[in-house]
Amino acid sequence: MDADLLQRFNPEEFYRHFLADGLRPDGRSLREPRRAELQRKALGSALGSASLRLGRSSALAGVRGELDEIGRIEVSVDLPPLCSALFREKHRALGQMSFLSKTLTEVLNLQSVFDATQLVCHGEASWVLHVHIICLNYDGNAFDLCLLAAIAALEDTDLPALMKEPGTEAERLAIAPAESEIVAEARKLVLLARPLPVTFARMPGGQWVQDPCAVEESLGASVSLCLVDGRWLVFHQGGGADANRFLEELMPVARTSTEKLAKLLDDP
């Protein structure tokens, strides 16, 4: 049978041929992530922004600031039908979107990751940072893609200086133009630790491959690990994984590959 036909109609069999040689159809070895490309300051109008590509997956993240009583980070992930036919059904996309939004909000607001006191301005109001992430092209591994884009955008964020708006009774805070009386200094946002993600997918033969593309994700289970300060968060949404071998096998691999991700984020 023609290779293209086999790939389309029986992806499991197609993959089995490659995995027997320890390779994947795109030429990567089992534990090799795709090439990551990060671009900071991708948007001019946001407080901070970044665009990230992982192979053919790409996402754009932007940070928008609002003043409110309690300072925090709010993440919203959008997977529009534009990025993949998988999300043509609104219902299916919503489940994935709310999972990613909730999880990333939770991870980025962890005490060990982000110190919310740096968001306080003038003792009365705080910045609420809305991180909007839009997936432009989906080819698997949405978790790593969105989390890395969010971290890069937050690290790129500059909080603007504020002044008291004259002429209003309540004296609201407003973004200060140059040469005005500043009540809150402009500053750069700092993350205490980076939560670094690694995703694996389980192939029909039982091997785990790192940084799966969309086809690999559809073949079996996929597991996202997130390393925060030497400890783990695990997100494994369905699909069999050997209970005894699971932790011993994947966690050490994940630990070494997060070091590479840290280098990517450090790179100016």
Binding site: E106, V228, W232, L233
Partner: peptide, 16 residues
């Protein structure tokens, strides 16, 4: 089969 079908954590990260 001693297989994990899913596991999801929320809240603080945990060690191995």
């Amino acid at each position: 089969r001693n297989q994990l079908v899913s596991h999801i954590s929320s809240g603080a990260p945990l060690d191995a």
